[in-house]
Nucleic acid binder design. Structure first.
Lengths: 296, 296
DNA sequence: ATAATAGTGTCTGTCAGACAATATCGT
DNA sequence: ACGATATTGTCTGACAGACACTATTAT
């Protein structure tokens, strides 16, 4: 069981080994976390009868210093030596949005050597889904500005799509053309994507963050089909129309109301609350069933 | 478009900034990749009529030095400053098994501060699936030994299972009891697992590698349902019985032959080759359809 | 004769997409 | 009257689990 007594080739016990151990002098990469914080907000319609549309939003910061000075980027920061990756991600989320206890999952880790021109940086991306509240994000030290960007990915044909990030207030529109390519790995074929900034876009996204955003959108699109994570993007009480438009914007297509409702029937339950926001029959508020929150 | 002319708060252009940039003196974690290399092998039956069973195997090395000296561990190693994470993973795979062009995907990144007692280590785990050939793995510098371990995870009731790693030849049996716990994050509940080494096991797995193995098994179990990755665990030509037992061992339950076949019908196609290995009607060899290899 | 492959067909229930029809409500 | 919610119902096709049955083959 214990290996306290075992000696290595130099005749050292584990305690002696650890006491004498000096981490090599070789260079080490910096380790950071990137935060992909999503929410949905109502695109308020003037028409007092028309419903509000939902828009998927992602939080971006405007970089204060080189490299990519003045460009929009994902929030994030260095991982302290004493904290785990998850802890670093929670800390960043708290710093940026001042909220806690929201859904979060690790996405993937990006480690291409030249992704940061300053030095070697390994970034673990985390995706957080926060309820659609009137959140006022806070610009950190490294940021001149911070804003919610409308994000969408729309297919424009055979293995091609457009990733679009927009914020009207900041007068920012950033578009990438994504081309999927397939190559064989063993007996499976994996697809890799190439990203090209469209000429129409005045500004690029910093680093390889467009790739991280794309991956998060794909993960979202897959996961809302077999989990309940989409409900993290709305408030505790929601109307069917509300959650349906969330699904529609993430999936990028319209859904049939009653088919959608049937699919949701086992996940949600009615409440007594009514929504009197528009000039027609009030919608019932629903909530996630307690037992369904736990399934996946 | 370009930001070459923009000046930061110190009045520096990007070129000037990068030329003068000195990475801070602060400590950095070491970055490694851990390789979860899976394959299946036939558990040959003496009975000339009985079929061979398949066993899922994972490659482990025996550590040569502290910490965890003499313990079995996942192969892996440090990421060089000039290579990406993917490249590091491919290099390790090549070093360990001398094979290339197999299916591989990034699993997750583990970065708890004390997972390595020597220093802070961030490990990105990669899962590779290699065809069931008679592979002779090679022990690296850091290893006294290397071997394929039979791996299985069996449910023993309410949120409890046993992770079992075994190699008869090396006289090694390692068993962990896994307890799943659920906690709320936002409106979803995520499950975390706790691992307890069973008293019956003489040896533990090094580091937190049991956790990585568990995560890989869960990923496998999920992914074989909606992708074709399982076919990477057998040779190019296989019998239905063969691929079915692969599914059965990964899912941990028996499947009905013809139902399984129907499900596979669109993924596989017959060949003219016959399998004369056992004393009964020869089985046809099948192969993955070319167009199905690309789906997912 | 045995033990396995390779396939047929059948029965059942569920589920998803599509859409029709209706009652209700607020302005 | 308008525009939206809320709900029931119908029709279809696909699919999945389960199992029975047959024909074939190598030793």
């Amino acid at each position: 069981m214990s290996n306290k007594h075992l000696l290595n080739k130099d005749g050292l016990t584990e305690d002696e080994f650890l006491k004498n151990y000096k981490p090599g002098d070789y260079e080490r990469p910096s380790v950071t976390v990137d935060m992909l914080i999503f929410t949905t907000v109502d695109k308020v319609s003037d028409n007092i009868k028309k419903l509000n549309e939902k828009e998927l939003k992602i939080l971006l910061i405007k970089r204060k210093d080189h490299p990519y000075i003045g460009k929009w980027a994902l929030p994030g920061g260095f991982v302290d030596m004493h904290e785990s990756l998850d802890e670093a991600a929670y800390r960043e989320l708290k710093e940026e949005t001042n909220i806690e206890n929201v859904y979060m999952e690790q996405l993937a880790t990006f480690g291409t050597p030249k992704r940061d021109p300053r030095m070697r940086v390994i970034s673990t991306a985390y995706m957080a889904l926060v309820p659609s509240n009137n959140l006022n994000p806070i610009a950190g030290d490294d940021a001149d500005d911070v804003a919610w960007f409308t994000v969408s990915k729309t297919n424009i044909g055979e293995n091609k799509s457009i990733l679009r990030l927009e914020n009207e207030e900041k007068n920012a529109v950033i578009e990438y053309e994504i081309s999927e390519k397939h190559c064989k790995k063993g007996f499976s074929t994996v697809s890799t994507s190439e990203y090209r900034l469209l000429e129409s876009s005045p500004d690029a996204i910093a680093f390889d963050h467009y790739e991280e955003i794309d991956m998060a959108l794909e993960r979202l699109k897959n996961k809302i089909e077999y989990t309940s994570i989409a409900f993290n993007l709305v408030r505790e009480y929601f109307t069917i129309a509300e959650i349906q438009t969330v699904y529609e914007t993430i999936l990028g297509r319209k859904l049939h109301r009653m088919d959608f409702m049937r699919k949701m029937k086992n996940k949600i339950e009615q409440t007594d609350l009514l929504c009197y926001e528009k000039a027609h029959r009030p919608a019932k508020y629903y909530k996630l069933k307690d037992d369904w929150a736990s399934v996946f």
